[in-house]
Amino acid sequence: MKVLAADIGGTKTLLQIADWGENTPQVLAEQRYLSGDYSSFDDLLRTFLTETSSTGNGLRGACFAVAGVVTQGVATATNLPWRLDATHLEATFELPQVVLINDFTAIGYGIEGLTPDDFAILQSGKPEAAAPQAVIGAGTGLGQALLVWQEQTGHYQVLPTEGGHVDFAPQGKLQIALLTYLSRQLDHVSYERVLSGGGLVTLYHFLKETSGMAESPALKKALSEGDQAAAISRSALEHGDPLAGQALDLLVQIYGAQAGNLALACLPRGGLFVAGGIAPKILERLQAGGFMEAFLSKGRLSELMQQIPVKVILESKVGLLGASRLAMRLAYEQL
């Protein structure tokens, strides 16, 4: 069963053709592209299919995961000027079936295909079989999804959300000052504004302007030359930069608090999974305690929070795996 899958993010897009056997895919072709290099997904997909023309024949279906809102077969990317239409893609590229899903929906479907080595455990908790699960992940944006067990299929159904855009709820004087700072610049301060790659940059500039701490010349130079979030994270983790370290610690605390908010909203006794591009890169900071301290700090319900398993997903292609897995399932349903 040969299918086409894509994981479309604001920074990068992964495309893959896989041939599924019995619940196991054989990857026939896979490419990574910088999303910003293409004016539309059509242009990118055309490039990929041209480059892989020898393996692209006989496709039975396609599933494209998009970092954005998906409604009735149309997806609008949140951090890209792209609009995808399933019907248009089927006709333009002669694909038998195209399904568009949210990128965190894809991550949810990909979890089933992971192994224990693909996770780092932050809290073992008391996992319950067939109980709800949840996913949260910071990267270019902030994504969240819910997973609900379906007895008739023997699989989890993934429910997408836009929970990353809920109101930022500060904890403590520093975060209250952060909200005040951002409210002068933004009409709506959501968690994504402070819990993402761009959010880390925002936290750094907030602390630089309000803490009185001096910016190191080396980091100032790095910020002017490339990926600012990566420069801040690297300076904190590898060089011990105090200002960058405080910004990263603040992000970790906010991350843990919002993961806890998500857990309270759906009680994922089957596990809460931390996904996205940032978590694996700052794993040592997540394991240092600030994340779980904020996660558990829920007043009268702190004891309940201790029962929820919390794991970091280490496999960077989990979204691509999930999109491919769903394309396979839907293609089999058409037989």
Rank of each mutant, 00 (worst) to 15 (best):
G270E: 11
V318C: 06
F291K: 02
A275T: 10
G276S: 08
G276H: 10
I278Y: 04
L304I: 13
K298D: 14
E315C: 12
K317T: 15
C266N: 07
R269W: 15
F291W: 06
L283C: 08
S302E: 13
L283D: 03
F295A: 12
L283H: 07
A279D: 10
Q306C: 12
E293A: 15
P280G: 12
A275R: 02
L301V: 04
S316F: 05
G299P: 00
G289N: 10
A263K: 06
A279R: 09
G299W: 07
E315L: 05
L267D: 10
G256V: 06
G256Y: 05
P309I: 06
A279F: 08
A275N: 04
M305T: 06
Q287T: 08
L304Y: 01
I308R: 08
C266P: 01
R285L: 04
A259Q: 07
A257W: 14
G270A: 03
G260V: 01
L262D: 05
Q306D: 02
I313V: 15
V318T: 14
S302F: 11
A279M: 02
S316T: 15
I254L: 11
A288Q: 13
K298M: 13
G276C: 10
I254G: 01
E284F: 03
E293C: 02
E284W: 07
L296M: 06
L264N: 10
A288N: 03
P268W: 14
E284I: 13
R269I: 02
G256H: 00
Q287W: 08
S302Q: 14
P309D: 05
V274W: 00
M305K: 00
A257E: 09
G276M: 10
I313E: 03
P280Q: 11
G256S: 11
N261M: 12
L314A: 04
G260T: 00
L301T: 03
L267N: 15
A259N: 05
A275Y: 11
C266E: 07
L304G: 06
S302P: 01
I278F: 01
G299F: 07
L262Q: 13
R269Y: 15
Q258W: 12
L314N: 04
G276I: 09
L304R: 03
L262S: 08
P309L: 10
E315F: 12
E293D: 15
R285V: 09
S297A: 15
K317G: 08
Q258V: 13
C266F: 06
A259S: 09
L296G: 02
G256Q: 01
I282L: 01
S297H: 10
A288K: 06
L286R: 04
K311L: 02
I278S: 00
A263P: 02
G271D: 09
N261W: 14
Q306P: 06
F291R: 02
C266I: 15
Q306F: 05
S297P: 08
A288G: 05
M305F: 10
R300D: 12
K281G: 04
L267K: 14
A265L: 14
M292N: 06
A275C: 04
G277P: 01
E303I: 14
I308C: 08
M292Y: 08
I278K: 03
E284L: 07
K311G: 07
L286C: 08
G256F: 07
L264P: 03
G260H: 10
P280C: 13
A257K: 13
K311P: 00
P309C: 12
S302H: 12
V310S: 03
L301W: 04
G277M: 03
L314Q: 06
E315M: 07
F295K: 05
N261E: 14
G290F: 11
Q307M: 12
